[in-house]
């Protein structure tokens, strides 16, 4: 067999590099450029992240929300985040969506299941940030509630329609946020608290 001489080595290395970079960048990928989000701000208690077990939340929701047919809780433990960071995550998620689907901002169009997709994205973006910075086994609580609108809330009328809102767990407790009017209120003071039909996070 013919030996490969030393002079061939650089070319072999170049070919290897091209193959390596080719493998690392799949052809099916498109890149989006977006501003970095602000670092996570979690709430501490006694020098440790403040957490709440899912079982406790579930019991409280089942007792406090007799009208809720579906209570779906995915994780076992949840952390508290600052209200400021909750709003930062919402703003960053809006940017993330706008970069990819600019026409939503241009025409103020909201696609089907916009709120649900937004909540999934926001919750996961928050968890990615936390996982990258802290070594904890708990999830950020950002999810959804569905409520029948029997009482008005700001500009949203009491029309009996079912609406979806974002919820978060912050240093001030549970927070309800409306993506369309950008208003927020504490979970306990939410006007349609008694007509919440579903909770998922």
């Amino acid at each position: 067999m013919k030996k490969i001489s030393f002079i061939h080595l650089p070319f072999l290395l170049m070919i290897s590099a091209m193959l390596l970079t080719g493998c690392a960048a799949p052809q099916q990928v498109e890149y989006i450029r977006i501003k970095r989000g602000p670092p996570p701000e979690i709430v501490a208690e006694g020098g440790e992240p403040k957490m709440i077990p899912a079982g406790f939340i579930k019991r409280r929701l089942r007792l406090g929300l007799p009208s809720a047919k579906n209570v779906v809780i995915h994780d076992r433990q949840y952390i508290y985040i600052t209200e400021k960071w909750f709003h930062d995550v919402i703003n960053w998620t809006e940017d993330f969506i706008a970069v990819q689907v600019p026409e939503l901002n241009l025409h103020q169009k909201y696609p089907l299941a916009y709120d649900e997709t937004f909540a999934t994205l926001a919750g996961n973006i928050a968890n990615i940030s936390v996982a990258g910075r802290y070594n904890i086994q708990a999830s950020v609580l950002i999810g959804l509630i569905t409520a029948k609108h029997l009482k008005s809330w700001g500009a949203i009328p009491a029309d009996g329609k079912k609406r979806v809102y974002l919820i978060g767990l912050t240093e001030k407790g549970g927070l309800v946020y409306d993506l369309h009017t950008r208003q927020s209120i504490s979970f306990d003071e939410f006007p349609n608290f008694e007509s919440i039909t579903g909770v998922m996070f």
């Binding site: 290395l13 170049m14 290897s16 590099a17 091209m18 390596l20 970079t21 690392a24 960048a25 799949p26 099916q28 990928v29 498109e30 890149y31 989006i32 450029r33 977006i34 501003k35 970095r36 990819q100």
Partner: peptide, 26 residues
């Protein structure tokens, strides 16, 4: 050459200061 190629590739998929360049499906 290899170092430059690898570094420039990393810059293409990685962060640039205050910005992120995130891979998304086509």
């Amino acid at each position: 050459f290899i170092v430059v190629i690898l570094c420039s590739h990393k810059a293409a998929i990685g962060g640039e200061g205050d910005y992120l360049t995130l891979p998304m499906p086509q």
